[in-house]
């Protein structure tokens, strides 16, 4: 039942030293076997601090415009739809089985919300001015928005994170809500149109209680364009 995967191979996959076919094989085994997935994850996390040692580089001018242009072409390049759907099915099954054991942890709570929520309509990765990924946004058709913070943001005292989107590219930003606890959260706002591809999302630092003008006033902590995942 269990497949033997040596720890050193997992390390070599994490480092990028293993040949492509080994990387693919190990990733497939990890999808099917949560214990291999956990060991691979541990191997990757061991080296993750090295990514923080890379010099910071500001995003060049025109980055978002070029990304938008690439997104417009992206659907034509979509591939492996059937394969992905199959993997998702396997993942659901595993999450359903594995989730029970860890029910007491925060991780399980997040997993539970994943089980509860349908697949997102759109997903956006928000980057800060240095090009660091600061948050992952998943927008549902009813504008329930799951915000996963990837960095502990550097918030000035007395400020709170406010999440915005622009349902109409030429219109004004609309508030999706505040991350009051300063942590990842799921926000719900009624009455907005279903989020669409290329929709702008951003997080700004606003005074306690949110922007007084109902428009972003504070510095941008992260912004990004949405994209419909291929499911």
């Amino acid at each position: 039942m269990t497949t033997q995967v040596p720890d050193t191979l997992l390390d070599e996959v994490a480092l990028g030293l293993a040949p492509d076919e080994d990387i693919r094989r190990v990733e497939e085994l990890a999808l099917a076997d949560p214990s291999i997935a956990a060991r691979l994850e541990r191997a990757r996390l061991r080296f993750l601090p090295l990514d923080d040692t890379a010099p910071e580089m500001p995003l060049p001018d025109g980055f978002w415009d070029r990304l938008r242009a690439q997104l417009d072409q992206a659907p034509a390049r979509a591939a492996n739809v059937v394969n992905l759907a199959d993997r998702r099915l396997r993942r659901w099954r595993m999450t359903a089985m594995g989730g029970m054991a860890a029910a007491a942890t925060l991780a399980a709570m997040l997993g539970w919300s994943l089980l509860q929520s349908p697949d997102p309509s759109v997903v956006a990765v928000l980057l800060d001015a240095e090009g660091e990924a600061v948050a992952l946004i998943e927008g549902q058709p009813d504008n329930t928005t799951r915000v996963t913070l990837l960095e502990r943001p550097d918030l000035p005292a007395g400020r709170v994170m406010q999440v915005w989107t622009k349902p109409d590219a030429d219109g004004l930003p609309v508030s999706l809500g505040l991350l009051v606890a300063g942590r990842s959260d799921t926000l719900t706002v009624p009455g907005l149109p279903e989020p669409d591809a290329s929709q702008l999302y951003e997080i700004t630092a606003e005074p306690e209680g949110g922007s007084p003008t109902d428009l972003p006033t504070g510095p941008i902590l992260g912004k990004g364009l949405a994209k419909k995942p291929v499911i």
């Binding site: 997935a37 956990a38 991780a107 997040l110 994943l114 995942p229 291929v230």
Partner: peptide, 16 residues
């Protein structure tokens, strides 16, 4: 964006 539905917070670290 394409693989976001494969991301499972229970099994992994988002930044990783």
């Amino acid at each position: 964006w394409r693989r976001a539905h494969q991301y499972d917070p229970e099994r992994g670290h988002a930044r990783g």
